[in-house]
């Protein structure tokens, strides 16, 4: 299974490598895979690429953690106290419907060019899908599970930990997966708009210098980063499922 998906990837790279000389594509439009690979190695050696990757990863990590944590906690609170949900819904919806790109400049103005504005932006985009998924998971518990909890005289805490939380878990992880792709985008957008470090900053620099190899290199690295992020969530989901079985 893994080998076969690797085969598809290898085929794509081979096609890309073959197309560049065959169609005589100039390197400033589309450099070949070897050139891109060389550029990535060069950037690691000479331009502290590892440091830039670290910055982006940290932004995504802290932002995603903050967003999902707030999302989960507020969903639990909203499920317990529906009045609060009615009070906060317009505000949350407004924050959700406004294009995130429009918020980014504001955050940069307020919080500067460092880590903070990107972390906040990532947190904002991660919050909504996680909160809604968790909330619907908690609200639409099978009625028969409520009966079971009643017959077993479960305490509110036992009911939450043993019945409601595991019921909501599949939805929660679906929400987190959606949030993970949004989080990546938000971090890069934040960096594109104003930063002096990070993969988005490298992208912007590559664009300014018409350095196509760097831009493509960053895109590939971001794809790998997204894949690693997704795998980590899958791993976490399996661990959590085992925890409750």
């Amino acid at each position: 299974m893994f080998l076969r998906s690797l085969l598809g990837l290898a085929g794509f790279v081979a096609l890309w490598g073959a197309a560049v000389p065959v169609f005589n594509i100039p390197s400033y439009l589309l450099p070949g895979p070897i050139e891109v690979f060389d550029r990535i190695c060069f950037l690691f050696e000479r331009a502290e690429l590892a440091g830039h990757i670290q910055v982006t990863v940290l932004e995504i990590f802290w932002g995603f953690l903050l967003g999902t944590f707030t999302g989960i906690v507020s969903a639990i609170v909203f499920a317990r106290i529906p009045v609060l949900l009615r009070i906060f819904t317009p505000l949350i919806l407004l924050l959700q419907t406004v294009p995130k790109i429009a918020i980014a400049p504001l955050l940069l103005l307020w919080l500067g060019l460092g880590l903070a504005p990107k972390v906040v932006l990532v947190a904002i985009v991660s919050y909504f899908p996680v909160m809604t998924a968790m909330l619907s998971g908690l609200r639409y518990i099978d009625k028969s599970f409520t009966d079971l909890a009643g017959v077993l005289r479960l305490t509110p805490w036992q009911r939450f930990w043993h019945v409601e939380l595991p019921s909501a878990l599949p939805g929660l992880f679906a929400g987190a997966t959606v949030a993970s792709t949004l989080a990546m985008t938000a971090a890069v957008i934040g960096e594109l708009m104003g930063a002096n470090k990070g993969m988005g900053f490298m992208l912007a620099t590559g664009q300014e210098n018409a350095d196509t190899a760097t831009v493509i290199g960053m895109v590939i690295l971001l794809a790998f980063l997204g894949w690693a992020f997704f795998s980590m969530l899958e791993y976490l989901r399996k661990r959590m499922e085992d925890r409750f079985s």
Partner: peptide, 9 residues
């Protein structure tokens, strides 16, 4: 219960 109500996880 009528329909078992086992916790699926």
């Amino acid at each position: 219960f009528q329909d078992a109500v086992l916790l699926p996880w």
